[in-house]
Lab assay of single mutants.
Amino acid sequence: MFKRLMMVALLVIAPLSAATAADQTNPYKLMDEAAQKTFDRLKNEQPQIRANPDYLRTIVDQELLPYVQVKYAGALVLGQYYKSATPAQREAYFAAFREYLKQAYGQALAMYHGQTYQIAPEQPLGDKTIVPIRVTIIDPNGRPPVRLDFQWRKNSQTGNWQAYDMIAEGVSMITTKQNEWGTLLRTKGIDGLTAQLKSISQQKITLEEKK
Rank of each mutant, 00 (worst) to 15 (best):
R143F: 05
E169K: 04
Q103N: 15
P87L: 10
N155F: 01
I59E: 04
P66R: 04
Y117H: 05
A21C: 07
S17A: 13
A34W: 14
D32T: 11
Q48I: 07
L76Q: 02
P140K: 13
P145R: 08
A9S: 05
T206Y: 10
A35M: 15
Q157F: 01
T187G: 11
L65P: 02
R4N: 13
A9K: 01
Q103V: 15
M6H: 01
L193P: 05
A195M: 14
G159R: 13
G142Y: 08
I49V: 15
Q69F: 01
V171A: 00
G114M: 08
W181N: 14
F97K: 05
R98L: 09
D23F: 11
Y112S: 00
G159S: 12
Y117A: 01
Y93V: 04
Q89C: 11
M7K: 07
K29L: 12
K83G: 07
G170F: 00
R57F: 15
Q202C: 10
Y72M: 01
N26T: 06
R153Y: 01
D165M: 06
Q107C: 11
I174N: 14
M31D: 01
E169G: 01
V146Q: 06
K37T: 08
Q118P: 11
L197H: 15
A163N: 07
K211P: 09
R143E: 09
Q202W: 14
N160A: 00
W152I: 00
Q62R: 09
A73P: 05
S201L: 10
D127F: 14
T206M: 12
K177L: 06
N160T: 12
Y28P: 02
K37Y: 11
A22G: 09
R147N: 05
T116P: 15
T25A: 08
F150N: 03
D54C: 08
V60R: 00
Q203I: 09
E45N: 14
L109K: 13
Q69N: 14
Q115L: 02
K128P: 12
Y28D: 06
Q202S: 12
N44I: 09
A22N: 12
A9N: 01
Y164R: 02
D23C: 08
L193F: 07
A14S: 14
K204M: 13
R4Q: 15
Y82C: 05
S17T: 13
A9W: 13
E33Y: 04
T158V: 05
A168S: 00
D149K: 03
Q202G: 10
I190R: 12
K83W: 01
W161R: 03
P66Y: 09
G170T: 02
L78D: 00
S199G: 13
G142F: 07
I167W: 14
D54V: 13
E63D: 12
G126C: 11
L16G: 08
Q107W: 06
Y112T: 05
I200K: 07
I200Q: 14
P66E: 10
K37I: 07
D149E: 09
G79L: 00
G114R: 07
I200F: 14
M111V: 12
T158Y: 06
A163M: 15
Q24W: 12
K204H: 11
A85Y: 06
M111P: 04
F2Y: 11
K198S: 12
A104W: 12
A110P: 15
A96Q: 08
R143H: 04
P145F: 11
A195H: 13
V131D: 02
T194N: 13
T187I: 10
M1V: 03
D149S: 02
M31A: 02
M31C: 02
T58W: 08
K198I: 11
M111L: 09
Q151E: 07
N155Y: 01
G189I: 07
A104E: 03
T129P: 13
D61H: 11
K29G: 12
D191P: 13
L42R: 04
Q80M: 09
G114K: 08
S17N: 11
D61L: 04
K211W: 09
E33S: 04
A18Y: 15
R57N: 15
A9R: 01
T58R: 08
E91M: 13
S172W: 05
R57Q: 14
I200A: 02
Q203L: 13
A19V: 11
I200R: 08
A96K: 05
R98V: 06
Y100N: 15
V68P: 00
M6S: 01
Q115E: 01
A19D: 01
W161A: 04
L56E: 05
L193A: 00
T176C: 00
I119N: 12
P27W: 02
Y164E: 14
L207F: 12
Y105H: 05
R98F: 08
N52G: 05
M6A: 03
I174Y: 13
T136V: 11
L148M: 03
T129N: 10
G192E: 08
K3F: 05
L184C: 12
Y112A: 02
Q48A: 10
K211C: 11
L109C: 06
P145Q: 07
I59F: 02
T206F: 15
G192I: 12
K3W: 02
V8Q: 01
S84H: 13
E63K: 04
R134N: 04
P124D: 12
L30C: 06
L148E: 09
K154P: 08
Q62D: 10
A168M: 00
D61E: 13
I205Q: 06
L5Q: 01
S17I: 08
K29I: 14
S201Q: 12
G189C: 09
N155P: 01
E33V: 05
K37F: 11
K210Q: 13
T194I: 06
F2S: 03
I13M: 15
R90H: 08
I137D: 00
K71I: 02
K204S: 11
G182Y: 09
T38V: 12
I205K: 15
M173L: 15
P15C: 05
M7F: 13
D61R: 04
L5A: 02
P27R: 02
R98K: 12
A163Y: 12
V77Q: 08
A85S: 12
K43M: 07
E99M: 14
Y112I: 01
D165S: 00
Q103D: 15
R57S: 15
P66H: 07
A95Q: 09
S17R: 12
E208L: 12
A163G: 15
K128N: 06
P27Y: 04
E122P: 13
A34I: 05
Q46D: 04
Q151N: 02
P27I: 05
Q62V: 12
Y55K: 13
D40V: 12
Q69D: 02
D61W: 03
K177S: 08
L10D: 01
A21Q: 13
I167N: 04
Y93E: 03
S172T: 11
L56N: 08
V146D: 00
Q118G: 13
K102P: 05
P53C: 11
Q203F: 13
R186N: 05
A34F: 14
E169S: 00
V77Y: 07
R186A: 00
T194M: 07
G182A: 02
M31Y: 03
Y93S: 04
D54M: 12
I138S: 09
V146A: 00
P121H: 11
V12W: 12
A75I: 00
